[in-house]
């Protein structure tokens, strides 16, 4: 039981990084990124390929952030004039392109067979149990660090410009802010964090394949950010843990419903996820920890 809890918390931590990434770009700059799974995949593959080629794991993870961020900049250049729904569709397409490349470029990604045997740092020294605890601490430490950096960012002038762009890009431009540049930086940071999450996932699982990066993952993260509270890092953080608690917790409900076949229990789990999403949106559309917008300082009379 204990190792299951440790595993679930580690997964939640990785989901948490993805939620923070989405919160920065969606909650901060108001850009809807449905391609989150794509950036996650880019980071995972970058770190996996590099470490399988003999690069030390910490360097490979760092490189995954950089590759993720670079891909983010590329994707933003291509979509710089798109907003709202159009941007959302293009980013969704981006994630599918990443998945198709991973499927077909066998020389690089080993195609649909995926990449097994990705090095897990210190696993041979610590043993499976010790590794699980070590990795949980590592993921939580990184999650904590990213969380505090993003909170700092949120309160900084850069964060305020982001939110100004979210509310009205033209007005922000009128106030002398270079909206394009700010959006580019924000997207790069967000994609870098998603890439970092992907790298951590790859080294934890030791196996990745194109099937890992289905759009379902993006939906889970949207669920996390929406239920936690869009626009507030603490909300995204909380939301990710709630989503894992919910996804894993519903497993144990099946035994309480007698007379259902396994197929029906699985279907009811999916319905519960949908129902929870609806309830959150209906009862608390601003999320559990809503964004706090501080009032402007009172002007001196």
């Amino acid at each position: 039981m204990l190792s299951y809890v440790i595993f679930s918390l580690t997964t939640a931590g990785i989901y948490g990084l993805l939620a923070l990434s989405l919160n920065l770009i969606w909650g901060g700059a108001g850009m809807v990124n449905l391609g989150l799974a794509g950036f996650f995949a880019v980071g995972a593959y970058a770190s996996a390929i590099l470490s399988l080629a003999g690069v030390p794991v910490p360097l490979a993870i760092l490189a995954a952030c950089v590759v993720g961020a670079a891909t983010g900049i590329g994707a933003t250049w291509a979509t710089v004039r798109l907003r709202g729904d159009y941007l959302a569709i293009v980013t969704l397409g981006f994630a599918e392109v990443v998945r198709l490349v991973a499927m077909n470029e066998r020389w690089l990604t080993n195609g649909t067979d995926g990449l097994p045997g990705i090095p897990a740092p210190l696993k041979s020294v610590l043993g499976p149990q010790g590794f699980a605890v070590f990795y949980l601490c590592l993921v939580l430490a990184i999650l904590g660090a990213v969380f505090f950096l993003l909170r700092r960012l949120d309160l900084s002038p850069f964060g305020r410009v982001l939110k100004a762009i979210r509310e009205d890009q033209d007005l922000a431009g009128f106030a002398g802010k270079n909206a394009m540049r700010v959006k580019l930086i924000a997207f790069a940071c967000s994609a870098g964090i998603a890439g970092l999450a992907g790298a951590l996932y790859a080294h934890y699982q030791s196996y990745i394949s194109p099937d890992h990066f289905q759009p379902l993952l993006t939906i889970y993260i949207f669920l996390a950010v929406t239920s936690g509270g869009v626009g507030r890092p603490a909300g995204a953080f909380l939301g990710a843990f709630l989503v894992i608690l919910f996804l894993e917790g519903t497993r144990f409900l099946g035994h309480l419903l007698p007379g259902l076949s396994s197929g029906q229990v699985a279907a009811s789990r999916e319905m519960l996820v949908g129902l929870a999403f609806l309830l959150v949106l209906h009862l608390r559309p601003q999320g559990i920890l809503p964004e706090r917008i501080r009032p402007a300082p009172r002007s001196q009379p």
Binding site: M1, S3, T11, L216, R251
Partner: peptide, 22 residues
């Protein structure tokens, strides 16, 4: 004990952990 792998390796691993550990 029957679990659902959702035809997805990420979900499959979570389900397998539950089967093995719990």
């Amino acid at each position: 004990i029957s679990e659902d792998d959702q035809t997805n390796p990420e979900a499959g691993v979570r389900a397998a952990r539950k089967l093995i550990d719990v």
